[in-house]
Simulated assay, not measured.
Amino acid sequence: MVFEIVVRVIATAWLVVLSVLDVRRHRLPHPLTTIPLIVIGLLAMGCMLVNLRDGWSQFVADPLALVLAFVAILASDTLLALIPAAGALATAFCCGTSAGQIAATGWLVALALAKSGIMGAGDSKVTMLLLALSPDVRLVICLGLAVVVIGGALLTWRVGWATPWLILSVVRDGLAGRFPSRTGEKGVLRVPLVPILAAGALVYLWLVWRVG
């Protein structure tokens, strides 16, 4: 119980600091995003090797799936990333637990959103770290609802009745393969995403985590 409270407090402080930095600088520091992600990748590898001594099991499959997802992140500038990404999904869904499936899938979805330009690189790392902390479908729901509700409210506040047409335009461009990373467009409606993600994560950490 005490350990869980400590984890929540540390995670909350981390999210608050990142939110402030995102609002003020529109950039997230590597020591608070990239380095923790590398640490998680190394820990997953160590966990996989330790559990492998006892033979193949879900305790090997879950960290292996995360390691493969991490390799896909490292190779994400090339098409070779598709190989470890496919391996991560195959390992997670064929041999892993639901936690491993959520973590690996979440990492790869966040990576895809970052590479397409829909989500910033720092935002995707924050999402990955949150899913590594708690690979729970309820966390995914909280993050998704925060983006839809808060992001939708901010968008409506800024553009008013043009919101549905703007969303339709973005969806149409995406279906046509015209992602921001390919067009070079940043858009005039860009808002810091970390505070929105933090809102969803905090609801999960303090209201949902212990429920059920």
Rank of each mutant, 00 (worst) to 15 (best):
M1I: 13
F3E: 14
V7G: 03
R8I: 05
A13E: 07
W14Q: 08
V17T: 11
L18T: 01
V20H: 01
L21V: 10
R24Y: 08
R24I: 11
R24M: 12
H26C: 13
R27I: 07
L28H: 01
P29Y: 08
P29M: 09
I38L: 14
G41T: 04
L43W: 11
A44E: 07
M45G: 15
C47D: 14
M48P: 00
M48W: 11
V50C: 02
N51W: 06
L52S: 12
G55T: 09
W56G: 12
S57N: 10
S57F: 09
S57E: 09
Q58Y: 11
Q58K: 14
D62P: 03
P63F: 03
A65N: 03
V67W: 00
V67L: 09
A69Q: 02
A69S: 12
I73L: 14
A75D: 09
T78W: 09
L79C: 10
L79F: 15
L80M: 12
A81F: 09
L82W: 13
P84D: 05
A85K: 00
A86H: 06
T91F: 02
T91L: 03
A92F: 03
F93V: 07
C95L: 13
G96T: 02
T97W: 03
S98G: 13
G100A: 09
A104H: 02
A110L: 05
A110S: 14
L111K: 03
A112K: 03
L113R: 04
L113T: 06
S116M: 14
G117D: 00
I118Y: 11
G120N: 05
G120W: 02
G120R: 03
A121V: 12
A121D: 12
A121S: 15
A121Q: 12
G122Q: 00
S124Y: 01
K125I: 08
T127N: 04
L129T: 01
L131K: 00
P135E: 05
L139R: 00
V140G: 00
L143I: 10
V147W: 05
V148H: 08
L154Y: 07
L155V: 09
L155A: 11
W161T: 14
T163F: 08
W165Y: 13
I167H: 07
L168V: 11
V170T: 11
V170W: 12
V171A: 14
V171C: 12
D173H: 12
A176S: 15
G177T: 06
F179S: 09
T183P: 06
E185S: 13
L193V: 13
P195H: 05
L197G: 00
L197C: 08
L197D: 00
A198F: 01
L202V: 13
Y204L: 04
Y204Q: 02
W206G: 07
W206Y: 10
L207D: 06
L207Y: 10
V211N: 10
